[in-house]
Structure formats: C-alpha cells, structure tokens
C-alpha cells in the first residue's frame, strides 16, 4: 500500500469522543456505521496507542484499550478533585496526537507499523480438530481442500485483543470463507481451536462457549500469564496459518 493511499484513507474520519464512566473516555475514529476500520486507520490508532503506552504513568492512564477503529482510555483518578480537568487535558492530547499522525510520513506511524511481528501458527485442519470444516464446505460451496488452501494462504493482521485473554481480532479473512455463526452456540470450544464466525477468523486461547465454526486446531499456547509476553499475538502483528495435516 503506498503512503498516498494511506494518508487519504486516514484523513476521512473525524473522531467522536464519548464519556463512559466519570473516569473513562471512548474515542471513535471510524464514521458511524463503519465497523471494520481500514488498515491505515487502525495503523494510526496503533501509533496513538503506542505513544500513550510510553506515557502511561505521566498521563495517569489506568487502561489503554484499542478496539476496532476506537480507543478506550481510563484514568487512575488518583486525584478525584482534579478528575474533570484531567479528562479535558487527556481529550485535547489524544485529539492532537491523532491529527499530528494524519500523515503516514510521520515517523511514529511508520514505527508502529514496523514493530509488528510475523507469527506462524501451525494448524491441523478438519477431522476431530476441526469438526465444522464440512459445514463450512457445505455453506461456501468450496471443497475442504479449497477452504484449507484459502485459509492458510491469507495474511492476517491483529487489529486488537479482547473477549478472552490473548484473543486476537484478525482482519483479512478471504470473503469466500465467511459463514454466519451457528444457530446454537457450542457449550465448549476447546483451547487452540481455529474458527470462522461471520467474516472473521480467530484462534481460541482458552476453552469457552461459542458460536463460531471450528475448522482446525493448533498446539500453540496463545496466552500464558507466566510468560514474559503473555499474549502471543499483539495489535499490529501479522499472522500466517500453516496446514500441518488433516486428520480426516
């Protein structure tokens, strides 16, 4: 993607700011109704996030949570009497930061994009590891082999984390693989399951109920609270799935 296209896309949205609790702000950088931010916009969001992370204490930030084209910020509110002044100052800093990152030529923005790692996740597709592969095949009209080929050919971007510790919201699923969620959610999706729900794909870091279609499984540990880097995948990272076999 060229810098010119990046900066054009990044300039479209005007941020909207909402107050959640007395100590929390939500900045929405996408236009209303636009729920899948273009990569350049999300990249700009990562740059803002990174800048705020580096000044977390100085700015009195308790939580810095990037979402899909948005950012939640919660203050520690150590001085309640000055909370309102603190909120006003934070609003101004973030809006200022957002506008100074309006161009991809900004060094911070380039850095934010380059810090991302490329992570390869080996997947056993189908069979017991992926009990819904046939369902996806029936829905999409693609053979199991074609689904595996398309799913493992994709380069996915981690947009943000949430839902479960280490659960990555990935952008970049081949639209041909999209399938509505199951009518009845499963009571238990095993940890390591690789699944498709709507136009998204994800890997489940821990066992949880869920309505996505399981197409495979990985042995990779996505989240370990004892690890130096507890979450394997972080915003800005690129993910590649590699088929290691098919059990049926």
């Amino acid at each position: 993607m060229t810098p010119n296209i990046d900066s054009r896309a990044a300039l479209v949205a005007t941020p909207r700011v909402s107050r959640l609790a007395e100590d929390t702000l939500l900045f929405l950088f996408t236009a209303p109704g636009d729920n899948t931010p273009p990569l350049p916009l999300q990249r700009r969001l990562w740059a803002v996030t990174e800048e705020l992370e580096s000044r977390r204490e100085e700015m009195g930030l308790l939580e810095i949570v990037p979402g899909m084209g948005n950012l939640l910020l919660r203050l520690t509110a150590s001085d309640v009497q000055r909370l309102q002044a603190h909120i006003d100052a934070l609003t101004a800093s973030v809006l200022n930061l957002w506008s100074t990152l309006a161009t991809t030529l900004s060094p911070a923005l380039i850095t934010a994009d380059q810090t991302g790692q490329t992570i390869t996740i080996p997947v056993t597709y189908g069979g017991e590891a992926g009990p819904d592969l046939q369902t996806v095949s029936a829905h999409t009209g693609l053979s199991a082999e074609a689904i595996i080929a398309r799913h493992s050919a994709g380069l996915y971007r981690v947009f943000c984390l949430g839902f479960l510790p280490g659960f990555a919201y990935l952008g970049g699923l081949d639209p041909a693989l999209a399938i509505p969620r199951r009518a009845t959610p499963r009571l238990s999706i095993p940890a390591g399951s690789v699944a498709i729900g709507g136009s998204q794909t994800a890997v489940y870091p821990s066992t949880t109920p869920g309505g996505w279609h399981i197409i495979g499984r990985t042995d990779v540990t996505l989240f370990d609270p004892a690890r130096q880097r507890p979450a394997l995948l972080l915003p800005g990272d690129t993910v590649r799935f590699v088929a290691t076999g098919r059990t049926a």
Binding site: A21, E63, M68, N70, L72, C160, G162
Partner: peptide, 30 residues
C-alpha cells in the same frame, strides 16, 4: 451496528432482545 470497542464493569449494554446487561468484574474487555 457498532464496532467492537472496549467495555468496563458498570457499562449497561442492551443486546438485540432489549433487556439490559450491567457488566460486572468478570465481563469481557471488548
């Protein structure tokens, strides 16, 4: 239709059935 965004304990969400949920400490983050 809203984008996935950070949520906090205390947020009152209204799913499509119209019945509110007050998020509590173990609520998911987004």
């Amino acid at each position: 239709e809203l984008p996935s965004a950070g949520v906090l304990p205390g947020d009152v969400q209204v799913p499509p059935d119209g019945l509110p949920i007050v998020l509590s400490n173990d609520a998911q983050t987004i």
